[in-house]
Design a protein around this nucleic acid. Sequence first.
RNA 1: GCCCCCAUCGUCUAGUGGUCCAGGACGCGGCCCUUUCAAGGCCGAAACACGGGUUCGAGUCCCGUUGGGGGCACCA
Length: 508
Amino acid sequence: MTAKARTRFAPSPTGELHIGGVRTAIFSWLLARHTGGEFYIRIEDTDRERYVPGATRRILEAFDWLGIDLDGGPDHDELRAMPSNEDYPGALDDGEYKGIPGPFVQSQRLPLYKQWAEWLVAHGYAYRAAETPEELSRMRAEAQARGQTFVFREEMRLRTDVRPDEPHVIRMRVLPRDGQTEFDDLIRGHLTFDNAQVDDQVLLKMDGFPTYHLAVVVDDHLQGVTHVLRGDDWLPSAPKHVLLYRYFGWPEPRWAHLPNVLGTDGKKLSKRHGAQSVFEFRDQGYLPEALINFLALLGWAPGGGDEQNVFTRDELIAKFSIERVGSSPATFDYNKLDWLNGVHIRRLSDADLAERLIPFLERAGICIDSPARRELLLKIAPHIKERLKKLTDAAPLVDFFFADISTPPMDALIGPKMDRQSSLEALRATYRLVESFEPFEDAPLEQAMRALCAELQLKPTQLFTIVRNAVTGKPVTPPLFATMAILGRETCLTRLARAISCLQSPGE
RNA sequence: GCCCCCAUCGUCUAGUGGUCCAGGACGCGGCCCUUUCAAGGCCGAAACACGGGUUCGAGUCCCGUUGGGGGCACCA
C-alpha cells in the first residue's frame, strides 16, 4: 500500500452539489480510503456575491446520503440543528479532526490569508495594485484586440504609489517573467507552461477575502493535503499554484487534474443535461451504491485484465488507484447507470429494499403507515426486486396490493384466442378453486392452477392472463401465484367475483 | 483571438511495440427460458479520427491535420 493520502473536497456554497463535483469527491475519497489516509470537506466561501444560504448544509446532506464518510468538515449536527437557512451560527469547527486543523470554512480563516499575502509582499513575490474593474476590462479589451491573452503585469499599474492603508488588492508576481513553470500531474504526466501566459493573479481582494488561488494553497498546505484532485478546468491556473508553493517554500502536493464529465451532447455536464444535483438522482430512485459505482467507472477502470464492472464500495476502495484514472473526458450514460442501479437493487436484502421503497411509495400515494402494511411490503419485496431499475418503478407494480382496484375493461378479461363464454367459465372455475384450495400458497396454487388449465383445455397463458387481470387489474404484475398468495384468499375472491359479473352483465 | 488539454465499438473502457483479423460492460438485434413484465443464459452487429514519420514490426512512440473539450475575473 502506498503512503497515506490526505485529500479534500472543496466546494463553494453556491448551490446544489453537482454530479460532476461528486465524481471528483469520490475519487478523492477513494484515494484517501485506499491508502488509509483522511478525506475531509472544506467550504470555499470566499465569494460573497455568489454565496447561497443553506448550500453548505445541503452539500453535507448529500455526502450523508451517498455514504461518503468524512474525517473533517463543518459540523453536520450543528448545521442540522439550525432552524433557518443560515449556515454558520458562529464559531464552527475551529478544532481539529484526526490531526487536520480547522476551521473548515474559509470565511473563518481570513487572518491567515491576509498574513500570507503580506508575507509574499514582504518577500518580493507579490505587490499591491488598485486598478478599478473598469480600467481592467479596458486593458483586457485592448489585449484581446491585439490578439493576445490578457496578462496583468506590475508595470501595467496605473498607480504605483498604493499604500497599505488604502483600498487595494495584492497580486502575485509571476517569476521568472520569461521562464516556464513545470510540474508533474498524476494523470497528464509532465506539464510545461510559459510564464508569459500566466497572469499576475489577484490573491487578496479589495474586500479582504482571498481569491481561490491564494486560499487553496494556504489551506491545503496548512491542512496537510497530499494530493490535490480537481477538475481539469483548473489546469490553466495550476502554474500559479505551483509557483505559490515554491515562493512559500512549502512542499508541493501531488497534482491530479481529472477530465471533465460530458453530457450526451458532448458538452460539459451542466444544468441542461437532466439531473445534475445529487438530490435529483436520489429523488429519481437511484441508489447511492449505484451512483458511486457508476461515477467511479467514469474515468477509472481496474485494468490489468480485470474486467469487473459491478463494485461494492469496499471493492472500489480496495482496487482504486489514481494512476489508473484516464485522461480523456467521459460521457455520462444514463443507460449504464440504470443497469447498474438495477444490479445494486437486486443485491439489496428484502428488508433493506422495502425500507428504501417507503418514501417512493408514499410519494405515489401508497402510504406504508402501519406495521401490517410494512409487513405486506416486506413480503412483496422479493417478487419485485428483479423488476426494478429505479426505486420509482415500484409503485405501479405494487399499488393493487395496497388499494382496491377498479374492475378491468371487459376485453382484458377475455383470454387470448378465447371468447367471452370460455373466459367466463375459466374465471368461474378459478373462483371455485380459490374458494377452497389449501394451502393458499405460491407453489401449491401454481400446481393446482396448472391442473385446472389441463382440465379446461387451456394454455397457461390463456388462463393466467385472465386471472391476472381480474385479480390485479393490470396486464403486467409480479409473478401471479405469489401475488395471489400475498393478496390473500378473500381479496382474490372478491376481485374474481367482480370480474365474473363484469363478463356476465351485458348478456346474462 | 490567444493558451492548455483530449482522441479505441453509439457510450464507459481493456490494451503500455509483436501474443490485437483489438477484449469486457451498457445499450441494440436474435435465440433460449417463461403465466405477464423482468431477471438469467447463449449468439450476433459494432471501434483503433486522418496524414506523415520512427521501427523488421504501431492502437501502442514522434510530428502535423481534423474534431472535441476547457481556460483567458478582485468566480470558484
